[in-house]
Simulated scan of single mutants.
Amino acid sequence: MRLTEDSKIKIKEGFVGQKMIVLPPNIRKTFTGNPLLSAFYLTDIGFYPKASHHERERKTGAHEYILLYCVDGEGEIHINHQYYRIKPNTFLIIPRETAHRYKSSATNPWSIYWAHFRGTNAEAIYNRFLDDGQIQVREVPYDETRIKLFEQLFSVLDYSFNIKELEIVNINLQHFIASLVYYKQINPVTFDTDSASLSIAFMKKNIDKKIKMETLADHLGISISHYIRVFKQKTGSSPINYFNLLKIQQSCQYLYFTDRSVKEISVALGFDDQYYFSRLFSKLIGLSPLNYRKKHRK
């Protein structure tokens, strides 16, 4: 669906069930001297359900970054003559000071959560949103917890503009946006389906076993030489060294949280030789297992 010249109806606000708060200028001025707010703060926030005929154009852009998160329906966004289609469970961040235009579908109007935000951290989060420096529509599964977080911060704002309320709202908004921007990093198993990532998941499930290189390669159905090559490209390490590192990381948990002996821990992690385990631990951690336990349990 493209924008058409004969689209005459433009509704910026006024949808049944809408929520919208615009922070007044005198409130925004207080943010610059507050260490919890100066790096990231919102200026406007809202939710437009079934926003039929919703359209907005800013020929010189906005002073803030603009998040548009769609949970229903669809629409389109134009940024510097580039066209982006937004649909359920997708979002996009419009850069500040950049000409743009967006519009809800006439036949399937969108329901969007939106926010305008500024600050040095805002710029950093926007840069994390980009894909190799390019704007993209990002897709994330619907999460009721994320929606409840938005509703909560909106309720706090609706109640008060006191400084503590503004602080928690901006902290929660940053968390809300990060849950979108960093979704892949928060849920790596969902996205990492390459051979190395699948192998790492297999290692973690079999952390208590002694596994040969042949078994790791056979699990993926590829040759050993190809397996070693793709694994090292992904991790910078050989598969066996990486597997041993995972075991040592797990042993740190055992040393810290349990009273198991070093021998018991080495056996639980598939090491036949307790002394080999201790040497490997010292090499990777810089302390012997017993010294690690003594130091960190203090």
Score class of each variant (00 low, 15 high):
19 K>A: 02
140 V>E: 04
274 Q>A: 12
85 R>W: 11
114 W>F: 07
54 H>D: 06
113 Y>C: 05
225 S>I: 07
17 G>Q: 02
47 F>V: 07
38 S>W: 11
46 G>V: 03
157 L>W: 06
215 T>P: 05
75 G>S: 09
229 R>N: 10
29 K>C: 08
110 W>I: 08
249 Q>F: 10
9 I>R: 11
283 K>C: 06
31 F>T: 07
39 A>N: 10
128 R>Q: 15
247 K>C: 06
51 A>G: 07
263 K>A: 13
231 F>L: 03
27 I>E: 09
31 F>Q: 08
111 S>M: 03
273 D>F: 09
187 N>A: 10
84 Y>D: 02
196 A>V: 09
53 H>F: 10
289 P>M: 03
164 K>E: 12
227 Y>V: 03
105 S>L: 07
50 K>E: 13
162 N>R: 15
173 L>F: 05
131 D>N: 13
224 I>H: 08
138 R>N: 08
65 Y>C: 00
174 Q>C: 13
199 S>Y: 10
85 R>C: 09
55 E>M: 10
276 Y>G: 12
38 S>F: 13
86 I>W: 04
21 I>M: 09
56 R>Y: 14
65 Y>L: 05
11 I>V: 11
11 I>E: 03
179 S>F: 09
62 A>D: 15
25 P>V: 02
220 L>S: 07
234 K>W: 08
4 T>H: 10
204 K>P: 01
84 Y>A: 02
206 N>H: 12
201 A>W: 12
242 Y>D: 00
114 W>C: 00
179 S>N: 15
270 G>W: 03
229 R>Q: 11
185 Q>C: 10
290 L>Q: 15
129 F>Q: 01
237 S>A: 12
257 F>N: 08
169 V>N: 00
71 V>H: 06
108 N>L: 07
62 A>K: 13
176 F>Y: 07
162 N>Y: 15
196 A>H: 08
45 I>N: 03
150 F>N: 05
19 K>E: 05
100 H>A: 00
96 R>Y: 09
7 S>A: 13
85 R>A: 15
182 Y>R: 06
177 I>A: 01
218 D>Q: 15
294 K>S: 07
103 K>D: 06
11 I>T: 07
17 G>T: 00
211 I>E: 00
32 T>F: 15
178 A>L: 15
2 R>T: 09
89 N>L: 00
119 G>H: 04
69 Y>R: 07
56 R>N: 14
60 T>A: 15
275 Y>D: 14
252 C>Y: 01
114 W>T: 01
129 F>P: 01
81 H>T: 05
207 I>G: 08
214 E>K: 15
41 Y>W: 12
156 V>E: 05
285 I>E: 05
74 E>W: 01
66 I>N: 01
66 I>E: 04
6 D>L: 14
132 D>N: 14
240 I>F: 12
289 P>L: 02
54 H>G: 03
166 L>W: 02
234 K>L: 07
112 I>Q: 04
11 I>F: 04
15 F>R: 06
22 V>W: 09
28 R>C: 14
41 Y>P: 04
79 I>E: 01
189 V>D: 11
264 E>L: 04
88 P>V: 02
215 T>E: 14
236 G>R: 08
17 G>V: 01
145 T>S: 12
58 R>V: 08
140 V>F: 03
296 H>N: 14
55 E>Y: 09
56 R>K: 14
131 D>F: 13
284 L>A: 09
205 K>D: 11
